[in-house]
Simulated assay, not measured.
Amino acid sequence: MMILALCLVTALVTAARPMEKPFRLEGRVYCDTCRAGFETSFTTPIAGAEVKVECKNRETQELLYSIGATTDSKGKYEIKVREDHANQLCDVMLVSSPQSDCAKPDSGRDRSRVILTGNNGISSYNRFANAMGFLKDKPLAGCQQLLQQYEQE
């Protein structure tokens, strides 16, 4: 009984301890200046956008982990996650944009599912989220011509 208790305590301490090498989650935030629903050559990065990653229990949807970040001058962010989130659903999502004329999250491009566990065959601790975007209030001049070019190709 004593050996079983010792093994259980050791396993719990090991599981609760932060990872020696954290996951490095990277992504980008952009302004969809043409309101196209995808990135174009007119798309611009958003500096100072707020994002967060949340991990929830798969069955109960209870929030178990949350951490935020801000994008740099190139619209990129990096979040270090020091815990393994096996068996949890983790999403990166848009929180806010500093650009008042490009502050509406693009539905379908406002979040990205990420895998934050080392027990899945991926040897690297680097994780990459899909780019997420906000919509410009009014499309830029020239967007109609640009979108027509996409249709022709």
Rank of each mutant, 00 (worst) to 15 (best):
M19H: 03
T70C: 08
G133Q: 01
F38G: 04
L140V: 13
V13G: 06
T10P: 03
E50F: 06
M1W: 12
E151S: 11
S66L: 10
A86V: 14
M93I: 07
C31I: 03
V81D: 00
E62H: 12
E83T: 10
L140A: 09
E62R: 15
C102M: 04
E54P: 01
A5N: 13
E153M: 13
L6A: 15
F23C: 00
T43L: 04
L64V: 13
E78I: 14
Q61R: 14
S124N: 07
A86S: 15
D106K: 05
E50K: 13
V95R: 03
Q99A: 07
V53W: 03
E151C: 05
S41T: 11
P98W: 05
E50L: 10
F42K: 10
I46S: 00
P98I: 06
P18I: 04
L4K: 11
R28D: 08
T70Q: 15
S124Y: 02
A69F: 12
R111A: 07
T33M: 08
A16L: 09
N87M: 12
D101P: 07
E153V: 10
T40F: 07
P22Y: 01
L8R: 03
M132S: 01
S66V: 15
P22E: 03
A129S: 04
K56H: 14
G118Y: 07
S100A: 09
T117S: 14
R35V: 05
V95D: 02
C34F: 01
T14Y: 10
G27H: 01
P45K: 02
D101Y: 14
C34E: 00
Q144R: 14
R111Y: 06
Y125I: 08
M19W: 02
